[in-house]
Design a protein around this nucleic acid. Sequence first.
DNA 1: CGTTTTTGACCTGCGC
DNA 2: GCGCAGGTCAAAAACG
Length: 197
Amino acid sequence: MIYPSNINPDFTDFGETFKFDDYDDDAFQMIMEGINLGDHSPTLSWTSSEKLLATEVASPFQTSLATSPISFEIGDKDEKKKRKRHKDDQVIHVFKTKSVKEIALDDGYKWRKYGKKPIRGNPFPRHYHKCSNPNCIVKKKIERDTSNPEYVLTTYEGRHNHPSPSVVYCDSDDFDLTSLNTLSFQTRTYSYSHSAP
DNA sequence: CGTTTTTGACCTGCGC
DNA sequence: GCGCAGGTCAAAAACG
């Protein structure tokens, strides 16, 4: 039994796949080590324009890719400035998903939307969400990538202090890992449980 | 009827 | 201090 964490238990429609442009070996490698897929190597990376840098690799992989201990910082100077407000130990994750619809990356956690703002230079608004769990302060922001409007950037801040309400299990016997070459996390390839293994 | 979304108002940090 | 931009609040509306 492989336990790859909860990436997208309620896959609906992210275009054809959960796919990334270009290639960044380091970022990709860290994510895949977390997922622990062994020798199988899906194609995953960040766009070169964003130059996402891995800035932290901390504790063991958690219950969700979206809340994995890997955090990224966008290499752009202005962007770093904007992020200065965050505490140094703030864990920030940025995920980029191809999506034809204005929908959030579904990571298995329950979120409550609390705001929407037009962002300067971006024709699409940014959406603000908080984790619905009473004592959890994790937030996520969702916005379209200006340089690539068919992609959606999902930014997570903080770590959940509780397990995901929806945990993914993957049975290696009937699941072809090589099909992850395009990271197509569709529900039919997984079975789910709401309790720990 | 409880939960979530919507949306305008309010707050905060920053540059000038 | 002022104005702008981004982030949050909270009441009302919508939803299931």
